[in-house]
Write a protein that binds this DNA or RNA. Structure first.
Lengths: 353, 353
DNA sequence: ACAAAAAACGGGTACGTAAACGAATTTAAA
DNA sequence: TTTAAATTCGTTTACGTACCCGTTTTTTGT
């Protein structure tokens, strides 16, 4: 004996009203072929009227296919633990959606080895995933990869840095220029217009460098607007071990003993802090990212501000929106700039990375 | 002809291995009675072995009941639009979960009328919801309400302010003390240790006041640690229309012409900004919340910093975790302090409330 | 020892949608 | 006109779990 609960919605009701079977309704819903123009129109109209929204639960349940999403980010290195956070975001999202029939395959590359990146992209393409989450450190190679994805109709989401004019489903990450601009603004609270500033770029690969240049540009622009523009010194450090860094820094400080502000364009600020601490000068130091070592120097009073953009959230959001796109074809924001967070001694304990 | 996809998981597999029916497995899963101790143990063991996790989709689909969640927050008033943001958060979450069989009933009260609050709580209890999201402005009445919820086994989540030692499922909101402390820390960047500070509390109801006092306490503690503690003046403004506010402020400024810093303990900072602008003095002004009018004064340079704690996110998170708790009995963080965000002219454009 | 009550268990349908498969109908080819 | 092919559509099973209802087994009482 069937219990007939009168449903006012659902394919069944549509089928009843249109005087067809649910299979036919299903066909027009997924606009598969095999339906005459006439009945198709009739059904469409009823769907419209009922403002039918499919039951997402039933939909996912009935569709037997398990979606596979590949993620590709740098591996955490001994030099910086920055990429721990995005990985955590991925794992968090993974835990949430794995129960819903989604498989997340994690791939990693070495930020100092272009080849490792290329290798991994090849592996990913071979595995034919349904979607890709990518942190595109190497621009040229990333473009090549995403082109292939486009050919294969694999949607992909970019995090951490963008590939302009690229056909990604979404970009989730910082607005680099503005974060540099904000850095200079903070500096302006702490200094007079005559004080000299030092910009420190620490990065081996020229490609990652692009990331840093954007921040530098923002920083310089603010100084141009509010300070004497020639008050800025800059140093590029390509040898990224601690010893080389300190060596280079000490050279700069010997040559310029009137530096008041130091702006480090990435998470390597703790290395600079280590040097400045030994220097014993009372400088203002601003850097990036919520890393353990950076926070420590902030609490010591060596680092004044950290700028941060929720790397964990970036990856988490990226995966979730990819999942929603694939599973429910939900709309996705094309560009999602993360907020530019300011961390101080006093609020870092509450920060959500 | 049935297509037999060999499932390694699921109740069916458990039933097969235990040599019982699905129904029996179901009984032990929900520990309903009607199963002998013996078979119960056998099944439990297999469940353990298989590390069985129920398919959430199927679970929700099969359970016909639609969950109802009631939300109770202040209505947006002409005096402050603060509560627009939590409402948006609620609506966002609502849109997401309504497709999953959850109904959200929204209730509102007037922050200046205790009775309206009590009335609404009564309505909510009559409707017998499965869960409640509450912004407990009036402490005593809120406690009475939550007590009844506990009796009726209705889980509830608190946002915006906490009821200490209360049996809520979760509290999602600011740590008020630390946000005040941070405010003072920012002030310290902008002033010398001799400068005088004015604390402004603007609130009609004594209950809301509790909220403000916590912030004030944090602010004062920082000053005690780093400045002369007697450098603080304080004013309580109970008549909250613009005219009264300006009248009171002008009196204070007449009596104290050496005030350098103004700390407004809630979102009414724009009113103070309006006064200070007309005053023409170059003061440092810090206040709360990402409201349109506040942002405007920040861009004018009247307001220096805004402290903000994602009210929209608070409500959103609250609803989502309530939903997950009810639908999937997911674990919930007992206390979730929101990050303490610092807004300046330069990063407000990217802020996510 | 026997009936009655209680406990233990299985069969089967439902949730709302997907999709394979086959039946019916129309159209095109001969 | 006949038949093959293509188009249009309906029936049915399946997804994994919940739970009603009826049947079998065990326990209890006399």
């Amino acid at each position: 004996m069937k219990k007939q609960i009168t449903e006012l919605t659902g394919v069944k009701e549509i089928a009843r009203r249109a005087n067809v079977s649910i299979a036919t309704v299903d066909r027009v819903l997924h606009n598969r072929k095999g339906v005459s123009e006439q009945t198709k129109e009739k059904i469409s109209k009823i769907i419209e009227e009922l403002n039918y929204k499919p039951n997402l639960l039933a939909q996912r349940l009935a569709s037997r296919k398990t979606l596979r999403i590949a993620t590709l980010i740098p591996e955490s290195s001994s030099e910086t633990s920055f990429w721990d956070a995005p990985l955590q975001g991925i794992e968090l999202a993974d835990a949430e959606i794995k129960q819903l029939g989604i498989i997340v395959d994690k791939y990693f590359y070495d930020q100092n080895l272009i080849d490792s990146f290329v290798d991994q992209t090849r592996l990913i393409l071979e595995s034919k995933p349904d979607g890709v989450l990518l942190a595109p450190s190497f621009i040229e190679e990333s473009v090549a990869f995403t082109e292939k994805c486009k050919e294969l109709k694999i949607p992909y989401v970019l995090i951490d840095s963008d590939l302009p004019n690229n056909g990604s489903l979404s970009y989730i990450g910082p607005n680099l220029y503005h974060s540099g601009y904000l850095g200079a603004h903070l500096v302006s609270y702490l200094t007079g217009p005559q004080d000299k500033a030092l910009i420190v770029n620490i990065s081996r690969e020229i490609d990652n460098h692009h990331h840093l240049l954007k921040k530098e540009e923002g920083f310089r622009t603010y100084f141009k607007d509010h300070h004497k523009p020639d008050n800025i010194i800059k140093i590029d450090i390509r040898e990224t071990d601690l010893k080389s860094i300190e060596h280079q820094l000490s050279r700069v400080f010997e040559e310029n003993n009137d530096i008041k502000v130091v702006f480090v364009t990435n998470s390597r600020v703790s290395n600079v802090a280590h040097f400045i601490e030994s220097l014993g000068k009372d400088l203002i130091l601003i850097g990036y990212d919520f890393l353990k070592e950076n926070i420590e120097y902030m609490h010591k009073g060596i680092v004044d501000f950290l700028i941060c953009q929720k790397p964990k959230q970036q990856a988490y959001r990226g995966l979730i929106s990819l999942y929603r796109h694939l599973a429910f074809s939900s709309p996705v924001e094309k560009i999602y700039f993360m907020p530019i967070d300011i961390l101080t001694k006093e609020n870092s304990a509450f920060y959500r990375n």
